[in-house]
């Protein structure tokens, strides 16, 4: 296998289905025999990203490219964008509503978690245009 390319639409109106793309990617990585610790790292980071897209950006696209030595996941949304990325990266900072907190999310750990669990984390955001996050985990 040289390269496996997977694309998913993340439904912004369906909190129940959030995480399905990550589950699929996790399943593929298991099948490929990737180290369970590495699978868990990308699964947590991608899942946080999926949840973020659902609760903050009305959904988006999740694209995973699996290579022999790494996985690269791109999470692209057309949401309102992040005004201050530095602030959003602070553990505990969140703009989530009480409704979202009551669902168990919105603790302000999403972006810090994505950075913590990946080998490379990149975020680009433009107000009114959207946000693109790129996560890389090396095997």
């Amino acid at each position: 296998m040289e390269h496996l390319h997977l694309e998913y639409d993340v439904d912004g109106n369906n909190f129940v289905s959030a995480g399905q793309a990550t589950e699929n990617v996790k399943f593929c990585l298991k099948g490929l025999g990737v180290n369970p610790q590495d699978i868990r790292r990308i699964a947590i980071a991608m899942y946080e990203g999926e949840i973020n897209m659902v609760i903050h950006a009305n959904g988006g696209k999740a694209i995973a490219d699996i290579y022999l030595d790494k996985i690269v996941v791109q999470l692209i949304d057309s949401g309102e964008g992040i005004a201050n990325i530095e602030q959003a990266m602070q553990p505990g900072f969140s703009t989530a509503t009480e409704d979202i907190r009551s669902l168990g999310f919105g603790a302000g750990m999403g972006l810090p978690n994505m950075k913590k669990y990946t080998d490379d984390f990149a975020i680009e955001s433009t107000l009114g245009v959207g946000t693109k996050i790129t996560l890389t985990v090396k095997f």
Binding site: T22, E23, K26, R40, A43, I44, Y47, G104
Partner: peptide, 17 residues
């Protein structure tokens, strides 16, 4: 161990093996 009952509890548990 949780008091939260929605499907994301299952997904979270699954992600953490």
């Amino acid at each position: 161990i949780t008091g939260l009952c929605n499907p994301q509890v299952v997904r979270t548990a699954e992600m953490m093996d």
